[in-house]
Design a binder for these strands. Structure first.
Length: 585
RNA sequence: GCGCCCAUAGCUCAGCUGGAUAGAGCAUCGGCCUUCUAAGCCGAGGGUCAGAGGUUCGAGUCCUCUUGGGCGCGCCA
């Protein structure tokens, strides 16, 4: 039996919360997963809060404050729990910080799975980036690419086996246009690179408005391609190879890679089966000359074949979904594609269900909002470049961000070797751009603003990288790396506890990010963690005894271990989001 | 016209699937560099959570309606 897909966050991925929940559950006779663990609004109240309301049924009724009082009285002390007080309907629990800190550091440094009992090798397919060949990767492609990449990393960290799929748009009438355009004007372009291909495409589309015949010409070319015409195939292959080579460069820049880059053309010979399946179920109908599947409740049907007899993307998506299920046996199959295609995916999955595939329910569209420029929607069909509302190339935006960042790093590190400066500028520049795209909720539109995207202060990628660099710097200055046990009783300051407590939360945020396919959960967690660390760090400015590198050696060792735990967690989280580790900046 | 999504501080956004006094960043103002990196930290001001009903012990969060915006609706993907 295939492992089931996660549908709810695991209960209490935070090891401290898990222990408290178990203890509370034992007192009231509830299941641990029914015990909600919150944070008190005020740190003085306690470390964890347990609302009594959800436990009323298990406890046999009564008034919430009374139940809270009973729980507070009966909770066993002496282990992790050192104190519990009822405040109205809430039980506020104080934990043994020394124990909790040990748990936090173990979890951050140890090899234990991020969240126990997650993943277990179940397969998650993630379809992301998926650009069209013969076009540049424009800035807006970053959204699908980096959200998808983050989901890949998040599921991998939770113990899933992830298949990274780049479903290239390399098939369809669009590519007939390119072949037609190439035949007409190809000789005018000395080098057929992606810029030339893009220009040919734009030119053809413009010409189509003037000459009605061009539409048919493009269709005819795609028909030739689909029928296996040798010239068409060779030319198309050239366009595809050229595009892939350029994509590879950009993906390398971003640190993104794929396991499956087959693209739509791969499914060409798999479509007859889909047509047979549809016909066999009596789902295929003719409508206005085309072959369609009517979707109950929808005004428009799913188009399977054009009047010309060529296939459409829906047909290929059906074939691809089936192929993925057969090949990978996925527990979950995700499509990280912009929100505008919501109807398409809804119909696609409904159609799979109509075909009798129970795994249709494990397919999920992971939509995201638009990337706008100055409030305007970006067009994949407009001209490239410029600030006039057209497109920005992804590589141009990254290059500009790197240029922005380089002098500031140089200023702070006058002795840095040029090669290292360049590497760090690259990591920070890319980090700024990438972070700006994963920190908002997926479904929010993001308006492109170079100034904001490359901003280094506040809630930004560079802030996280800077915090990480400070961790590295401490370890370098201390001359030792402490990743083993130390005397945790020496970490007695509130600021140290605040850091440790935040470390404990890492797993639950990653798990929640996976359930909701929302990488921004991890992004905000990292900002919180970096904030707690910075607060702790800054206290050393006023008082040398509060610094990590303090005179008391046992204290220093304990603090170094905490720094190391933060460093590990930040590195892990940054990597998850597609930001590079930075050891100095 | 039909469908989906959104509305939280001046701006950009969080708010852990219904919990206690709604939080950050930017911007503004005021503090902290003989300091393990000031790309940082602390403080102040700033809110009718678009509006109106409803559901219940409890609603920014759930249901309905209204307003305002966005996106999508047959042979592109």
């Amino acid at each position: 039996m295939a492992p089931s897909a996660p549908s709810a966050p695991p209960t209490h991925a935070n090891p401290c919360a898990a222990e408290i929940a178990a203890a509370v559950a034992a007192v009231v006779g509830a299941r641990p997963e029914d015990v909600k663990i919150d944070q008190p609004p005020n740190r003085a109240l306690g470390d964890f809060a347990v609302p009594a309301f959800p436990l009323l049924k298990a406890a046999g009724g009564g008034a919430p404050p009374a139940l809270a009082a009973r729980i507070a009285a009966e909770l066993p002390r002496g282990g992790l729990i050192v104190d519990a007080t009822a405040t109205g309907p809430f039980v506020n629990v104080k934990v043994d910080r020394v124990r909790a800190i040990a748990m936090a550091i173990d979890a951050a440094v140890g090899r234990a799975p991020l969240v126990p009992d997650q993943g277990q090798g179940a397969v998650v397919c993630v379809d992301y980036s998926s650009p069209n060949i013969s076009k540049h990767l424009a800035y807006h492609h970053i959204r699908s690419t980096m959200l998808g990449h983050a989901l890949v990393e998040i599921f991998t960290a939770l113990g899933y086996r992830v298949v990274r799929i780049n479903h290239l748009g390399d098939w369809g009438t669009t590519h007939g246009m390119l072949l037609a355009a190439y035949q007409r004007w190809g000789a005018e372009y000395p080098t057929i690179d992606v810029t030339a291909l893009n220009a040919l495409y734009v030119r053809y589309r413009a010409a189509m408005k003037e000459e009605p015949g061009l539409d048919a010409e493009a269709r005819a070319w795609f028909k030739r391609l689909e029928d296996g015409d040798a010239d068409a195939r060779a030319r198309w292959q050239q366009f595809r190879d050229t595009s892939l080579a350029e994509f590879r460069k950009v993906y390398d820049l971003l640190g993104v890679a794929f396991d499956d880059e087959r693209g739509e053309s791969f499914y060409e010979d798999k479509m007859p089966e889909i047509l047979e399946l549809l016909a066999g179920k009596g789902l295929l109908e003719e409508s206005e000359g085309a072959q369609v599947v009517k979707i109950p409740g929808d005004k428009t049907p799913l188009l399977i074949k054009t009047g010309d007899g060529t296939t459409l993307y829906a047909t290929r998506d059906l074939a691809a979904a089936l192929y993925r299920q057969r090949t990978y046996g996925f527990a979950r199959s995700l499509y990280v594609v912009d929100r505008g295609q919501g109807l398409h995916f809804k119909q696609l999955f409904t159609c799979l269900g109509m075909l009798g595939f129970d795994w249709a329910s494990r397919c999920q569209h992971v939509p995201f909002g638009l990337v706008r420029f100055g409030g305007k929607k970006t067009s994949t069909r407009g001209a490239v470049g410029g600030s006039g509302g057209g497109q920005f190339l992804l590589t141009d935006v990254i290059a500009e961000a790197v240029d922005e960042v380089r002098p500031r790093i140089a200023e702070k590190n006058p002795d840095m070797a040029p090669a290292e400066l360049e590497a760090i500028a690259h990591a920070v520049g890319v980090g700024a751009v990438v972070f700006a795209n994963v920190v908002p909720q997926r479904d929010r539109d993001v308006d492109f603003d170079m100034e904001k995207v490359t901003s280094l202060s506040g809630d930004s990628g560079p802030y996280l990288q800077y915090t990480l660099a400070r961790c590295w710097n401490i370890e370098r200055k201390a001359g030792e790396l402490v990743d083993g046990p130390a005397d945790w009783t020496l970490l007695s300051h509130d600021a140290e506890w605040a850091v440790a407590r935040k470390l404990l939360e890492f797993g639950e945020h990653v798990a929640r990010a996976a359930v909701n396919c929302e990488p921004h959960v991890v992004a905000h967690y990292l900002l919180d963690l970096a904030g707690e660390f910075s607060r702790w760090y800054t206290q050393g400015n006023d008082d040398a005894t509060l610094r990590v590198i303090c005179d008391d050696l046992p204290t220093r060792r304990a603090r170094l271990a905490l720094v190391h735990a933060v460093k590990r967690t930040l590195t892990r989280g940054l990597t998850m989001l597609g930001l590079a580790e930075v050891t100095r900046m």
